[in-house]
Nucleic acid binder design. Structure first.
Length: 434
RNA sequence: GUGGUUGUAGCUCAAUUGGUUAGAGCGCUGGUCUGUGGCACCAGAGGCUGGGGGUUCAAGUCCCCUCAGCCACCCCA
């Protein structure tokens, strides 16, 4: 870390895996948010905001010590009092913490919450995977019934469809519960251990740490072996099997297509029963737009009252990538209603007064602050996409009547200065001729 | 964390076997049009070729290191 005696200034860049959301992209993100707010609230979910960082062990306990997120991807730091804190890698644990801390179990159940925020994982970045990324998600706490699973899944799909995304594949699976998962895991391990030597090093590791993950492997040899292995969906206890059937019925009733996926394994240890994931086939390696599942034991494990729950999280950047891949244009450009142009530089203060009145009246209005010629002001108004331009010159200011030009048609009409705002509003409500 | 690949104006890309002041289109600013936009034409601004070191008479071109993006693995949103 030798400091060079340089006279050049260091060029600062956004840290690896992070990015600036310039106005265009920020507007897209905001659109995803406002659209989500509308639909999620229609489904009865209310927004919750939790801190960006939490006690480190909140995450290590919930996500699972064996997961990569806990083992190597957390942004962990000590504060000045020596507390170990971690930038949240996901939001379910914080929401559950808040649920318990504020005794939300005393509210009407299920307690339905949604959140938006940036999450942090120290991973090697690539398209669709960043170190700081935005998630949108919901949690429904309190109901063990399969119909709430269906609601959460339908909500996820409906939201994505509302953005005009079409190329989506919904995968549904089950992780079983305490009764059936452990016996199944044992069975799977027994089945695979004799063949372990033929499998890839990753899978050998998985067999020890978390056997279910072998289903994620992309290695050909492993896949062949795994194809023969028992599937969890064939080894569920009666209750879990029935739960899964009921969830499927709910989804079918909502008219949503899905794929039953016995190999769907989700990364967090806290999942029980229903798991699901929505993928875009257009996206490459990071194809999961959103996913989630049921977590019936997590709240009790944190010392809260036994509370079944289910939720999903959705990656906003991935949604943006999918929209791009499907060539969906988010038409969210903002443009002024009118532009105030001046002929003489000396009239700019007067123009500014009029501009401010118009803005206070509720119109989106702009003027030039670069001392441009009238001609250049017109060009600027055009580029900004302004619907109307009013031109203030010596004549207009003397007579008190200004020209209002419709930029689409080129038509101009004279209006008295104190009626500009009303005139614009009237003109805007006129049907537009093509 | 592993392997691969790329890095030239704001953006998309050029630059003969290493060879003089690194170009184009789009965008930006202004003008032709001195009180009127879109089109056209003209002009201008804008680069220590991601950063550092090395080889060479000479490096955007070759070598090493580093940073960053991308592709895949791992994992996940």
């Amino acid at each position: 870390m030798a400091n060079k005696p340089d006279n050049k200034r260091k060029k600062y860049r956004a840290p690896r895996g992070t990015s600036d959301y310039l106005p265009k992209r920020a507007a897209q993100l905001h659109y995803l948010d406002s659209q989500a707010a509308e639909i999620f609230e229609r489904y009865g979910y209310r927004r919750i905001i939790t801190p960006t960082f939490e006690d480190t062990d909140l995450f290590s306990r919930s996500i699972g010590e064996s997961s990569d997120i806990v083992r190597k991807e957390m942004y962990t730091f000590n504060d000045k009092a020596g507390r170990s804190l971690t930038l949240r890698p996901e939001a379910t644990a914080p929401v559950v913490r808040a649920y318990i801390e504020h005794k939300l179990h005393s509210e009407i159940k299920p307690v339905k919450l949604y959140y938006i925020g940036s999450m942090f994982r120290y991973e090697r970045p690539q398209a669709g995977r960043y170190r700081e990324f935005w998630q949108l998600g919901v949690e429904a706490l309190g109901s063990p019934k399969p119909l709430i699973d269906a609601e959460v899944i339908v909500l996820l799909v409906d939201y994505l469809k509302s953005l005009a995304l079409n190329d989506l594949v919904l995968h549904i699976g089950s992780m079983g519960d305490d009764k059936c998962r452990l016996p199944y895991t044992k069975k799977l391990r027994q089945e695979l251990e004799p063949k372990a030597e033929a499998m890839c090093p990753d899978c050998q590791q998985r067999l020890k740490l978390n056997p279910l993950r072998v289903f994620d492997c992309k290695n050909k040899v492993c896949r062949a072996i795994i194809a023969e292995a028992p599937k969890i969906t064939d080894n569920l206890c009666d209750e879990c099997a029935n739960h899964l059937v009921q969830v499927e019925k709910g989804i079918i009733g909502a008219g949503i297509k899905y794929q039953l996926d016995p190999t769907l394994v989700r990364g967090f240890d806290y999942y029980t029963r229903t798991t699901f994931e929505v993928r875009s086939p257009l996206l490459g390696a990071q194809s999961a737009l959103g996913g989630g599942g049921r977590y019936d034991n997590l709240i009790a494990e944190y010392g809260g009252p036994a509370t079944p729950a289910i939720g999903f999280a959705l990656g906003m950047e991935r949604v943006l990538l999918a929209l791009e891949a499907e060539q969906v244009k988010l038409d969210i450009e903002i443009s002024p209603d009118l532009f105030v142009a001046v002929v003489d530089n000396t009239d700019r203060p007067e123009a500014f007064r009029i501009l401010t009145d118009l803005r206070r009246y509720g119109l989106a209005a702009e003027m030039d602050y670069m001392a441009r010629s009238l001609r250049s002001q017109m060009k600027l108004a055009d580029k900004l996409g302004s619907e109307f331009v009013i031109i203030l010159g010596p004549d207009e200011l003397k007579s008190g009547r200004v020209a209002i030009k419709n930029m689409a048609t080129g038509a101009e009409r004279k209006v008295s200065l104190d009626q500009i705002a009303d005139s614009i509003k009237n003109l805007k409500s006129e049907p537009k001729g093509e």
